[in-house]
Every structure is written in structure tokens, then in C-alpha cells.
């Protein structure tokens, strides 16, 4: 009987190896889409998520609009912004400008804006712990709760060691009806700006 049991176990081993050898974790992957929704930015770290406030330097200087119909106004704004610094609880930011970008308003008038780059440097140890993300009182869930999924989508800067954090927060935001997008990030610094570059899109 014992010999039979060994034989059966051998058979089970072979069966298990054959079946589990082809095991897959199925993932659904959307395609990148353009829409009018506004991104809610977050930085994903290995065990934390930090919210990214856009236009932080402009806000600190009281600048609410950087697109002008006058080139002189744009140049004045550019001078104010160049080298300006600001910070919040999670990031230190520095703005630099490099001339003026020219374009057109929708009505055909000329438009001018500073060629602005803002560098965000993460403050270590700040942000929301991933252990706390699903807590009903977590700031991440409160942020989602105070925004409307049709008007906003979540956009994540993802570090190389933060894949699981990204998958977690994307799942959470997806359960709250938000589309999401992401961009790979190889350091704790990243830049946003007005020039050519990658536009935040949802997938």
C-alpha cells in the first residue's frame, strides 16, 4: 500500500509540475487615451505615496496664470519665476525658465508663456504609508473622495522599486471609478514644465 502511495505521489508531482509550470497571472492592460480630465499627481515610492501639487512655485508667488497676450508680461513673469523656490510637506521645488514660448489662443490671438521647468525633489520619509492607504480616513482616499472621476484621473510617478505600491494605489483609485496613468521614474527627482514633453494621459 505504501508503494502505491509513493507511486500516486510521483504521479501527483508530475501532474503538479506540468500544470503549474504554465501558471500565469492574468492582467488587463488598457490603452493610452487622451481626454479632458485633469490629473491628480502622486509619487509612488517603495512603501509610500506622496501627493504632488502642481504649479506649486507659481502659487507661492501668487501667479495664477502664466499664459499672456503680451510678450512683455510673459517676460516679466519669466523673470519672477526663474530660480524661484517653494516647498510643501512632501517636495522641495525649484523653477527655472528658458525664454518665452509662443503660441495662439483659441480665438487666434498670439499667446506667450514662460518656458518653465519645475524640479520636484522628494523629502525622504514623507507621504502616506502603503499600510494606511485603505484606511477610511487615509488622505489618499479623502483626496479621491473629494474629486469627481469624470473630471479627474490619477497619474503616478513610479520609481523602479515601487511597482507594488503603484499597482495597489491604481487598484484603489480604480475601485473609486478613477482612470489612471503613470510615468516611469528613475530617481526621486522629477520635472514638470510648459515646454515640449510628455503629457499626462490615462490608460
Amino acid at each position: 500500500m505504501l508503494t502505491n502511495t509513493v507511486g500516486i505521489t510521483l504521479f501527483i508531482l508530475a501532474f503538479t509540475v506540468l500544470v503549474t509550470g504554465g501558471a500565469v497571472v492574468v492582467r488587463r492592460l488598457p490603452i493610452e487615451t487622451q481626454n479632458d480630465a485633469v490629473p491628480l499627481y502622486f509619487l509612488c515610492l517603495s512603501d509610500r505615496v506622496a501627493p504632488v501639487t502642481p504649479n506649486i512655485v507659481e502659487s507661492s508667488l501668487g501667479i495664477t496664470n502664466i499664459v499672456f497676450s503680451s510678450e512683455t508680461d510673459a517676460e516679466d513673469c519669466s523673470r519672477r519665476l526663474d530660480g524661484a523656490m517653494a516647498e510643501d510637506n512632501y517636495f522641495k521645488c525649484k523653477a527655472t525658465t528658458d525664454g518665452i514660448l509662443r503660441g495662439h489662443f483659441s480665438d487666434g490671438r498670439s499667446a506667450y508663456e514662460p518656458d518653465l521647468t519645475t524640479t520636484y525633489t522628494y523629502k525622504p520619509g514623507t507621504g502616506y504609508s502603503t499600510n494606511w492607504l485603505t484606511d477610511p480616513h487615509s488622505p489618499f482616499l479623502l483626496t479621491l473622495a473629494t474629486n469627481w472621476p469624470k473630471e479627474k484621473f490619477t497619474y503616478f510617478y513610479v520609481q523602479t522599486n515601487a511597482l507594488h505600491t503603484f499597482w495597489l494605489v491604481r487598484d484603489i483609485s480604480g475601485k473609486h471609478g478613477f482612470r489612471s496613468g503613470w510615468i516611469p521614474l528613475a530617481s526621486t527627482k522629477f520635472m514638470t514644465g510648459t515646454g515640449d514633453g510628455v503629457r499626462a494621459t490615462s490608460q
Binding site: A23, V24, V25, V26, R28, L29, P30
Partner: peptide, 10 residues
């Protein structure tokens, strides 16, 4: 850890 990932388009 050894499982492959099967991607299914959405």
C-alpha cells in the same frame, strides 16, 4: 514568484 504573467488587453 515563478508564475508568468499573461496579458489580456482590456
Amino acid at each position: 514568484p515563478g508564475a508568468g504573467i499573461g496579458i489580456v488587453p482590456a
